[in-house]
Design a protein around this nucleic acid. Structure first.
Ligand SMILES: [Mn+2]
Ligand SMILES: [Mn+2]
Ligand SMILES: [Zn+2]
Ligand SMILES: [Zn+2]
Lengths: 146, 146
DNA sequence: ATTCTATTTTGTAATCATTACAGATATATA
DNA sequence: TATATATCTGTAATGATTACAAAATAGAAT
């Protein structure tokens, strides 16, 4: 955890991005909360520790980090933008009932698709939707009870 | 084209969705314009033919069609919701430069991923981003000219 | 340490997409 | 035709994001 966090700091220096206190805190939050939080979640939680924090700063920081390739934007839902500290290729599963987003490993190279050799592909995202194990068992439980 | 359009009408009847003029026109637009249009594009274009059309109706219609599984929402970008008449599994490629969204065939079953057997998977989406052939050749052209 | 400069943050206002709602219109049924 | 239901419309409200200008901060130079 700490090790990768130090790595992030170095990544920022490499890209000439100053590491302000606010930016550090946003990065820290994403590192510690890997639940793909929304801007509002990040802001609300950090605001407890940093009462002067502005939501604009959170937006600015997330944009900068994203442009630097240090975080990934998850657009699995059309009405909520989420952020992910994990920029390695992996899939996302969103539960329709509880709304939680689960990570899963994928081998993107296994996916067969049309010839796109004339396209320059920069990123690949895989989004699944459905119902998670917890919610499925809740449904069963409710049915049993009637 | 006409054949599948008749098919759509029947799908609507099957699901007890009345086929109003406005709904027919939205469906027709999506059938004829397979470029994954935004709400605004659909509204603006239909408004020429139907001056009384309300944007709210377009929103309502798209929601109804989506809930009935007759159209698919494409959330490849976080700031623009797009709509697709093609509900079969296929991938989407968005060009960062011209913004165009390309379809491509995929074999979703070829993708290897973590064991999700305890999850109920209802839908799978694959989104690629990068630069399309046309924009790539424009870049080359500009470099040559200096 | 002080001044100067560039960067970052903050707070507010503006914008844009979407939804809520209530009245008007059209459609179906008796 | 009368009545009930469904749909459409226009406007207002909401919520997320962006624009912007002033305030605060940090870094460099003197
Ligand atoms: Mn993730
Ligand atoms: Mn498509
Ligand atoms: Zn769930
Ligand atoms: Zn392009």
């Amino acid at each position: 955890m700490e090790a990768s966090f130090e790595g992030l700091k170095q990544e920022l220096k490499k890209r000439d991005i100053n590491l302000s206190y606010q930016r550090l805190k946003v990065l820290e939050y994403l590192t510690l909360n890997r639940c793909h939080p929304t801007v509002d979640q990040i802001f609300t939680n950090l605001h407890r520790d940093i009462p002067t924090l502005s939501k604009t700063t959170v937006y600015n920081t997330l944009r900068i980090l994203q442009e630097a390739g240090l975080i990934k934007v998850v657009t699995i839902e059309d009405n909520e933008t989420r952020y992910d500290i994990d920029v390695e290729d992996h899939g996302h599963f969103k539960c329709k009932l509880c709304g939680k987003i689960y990570d899963f490993h994928t081998d993107m190279s296994s996916l067969t698709f049309d010839d796109l050799s004339n396209f320059r592909i920069d990123s690949k995202d895989v989004y699944f939707k459905g119902i998670c194990p917890g919610c499925l068992s809740n449904i069963k439980e409710n049915k049993r009870r009637g």
